[in-house]
Simulated assay, not measured.
Amino acid sequence: MSAPAGALLCGVDEAGRGPLCGPVVAAAVILDPQRPIAGLGDSKKLSAKTRERLALLIREQALAWAVAEATVEEIDRLNILHATMLAMRRAVDALALRPDEVLVDGNRCPQLSVPVRAIVKGDALEAAISAASILAKTSRDAAMLALDVCHPQYGLAAHKGYPTAAHLAALRRHGVADFYRRSFAPVRELLANPPLWVDEEGR
Rank of each mutant, 00 (worst) to 15 (best):
26 A>K: 07
145 L>I: 12
35 R>T: 09
127 A>L: 06
115 P>D: 07
107 N>F: 06
156 L>Y: 03
75 I>W: 05
171 L>D: 06
58 I>E: 11
114 V>N: 03
196 L>H: 13
6 G>V: 01
44 K>N: 01
9 L>E: 15
176 V>L: 06
197 W>K: 13
57 L>N: 05
82 H>P: 00
90 R>L: 05
146 A>D: 14
72 V>A: 02
175 G>A: 10
48 A>D: 14
166 A>N: 01
57 L>Y: 01
22 G>L: 09
130 S>K: 10
50 T>Q: 12
4 P>A: 13
9 L>D: 11
37 I>Y: 04
102 V>G: 07
179 F>R: 07
120 V>G: 09
70 A>Y: 01
146 A>L: 12
175 G>Q: 06
45 K>F: 02
78 L>D: 13
114 V>L: 08
165 A>Q: 15
169 A>R: 12
183 S>C: 13
113 S>Q: 14
59 R>S: 10
180 Y>A: 04
90 R>D: 00
37 I>S: 02
139 S>G: 12
183 S>Y: 02
197 W>S: 14
188 R>K: 15
178 D>A: 12
143 A>E: 11
38 A>H: 00
126 E>Q: 15
122 G>A: 12
151 H>V: 02
151 H>M: 06
200 E>C: 05
167 H>A: 12
167 H>N: 10
140 R>K: 12
110 P>K: 13
36 P>C: 02
146 A>G: 00
144 M>K: 09
15 A>Y: 02
138 T>H: 01
62 A>I: 04
127 A>C: 05
173 R>K: 15
48 A>I: 12
94 A>W: 09
145 L>E: 13
156 L>C: 04
68 A>T: 01
101 E>V: 15
68 A>E: 12
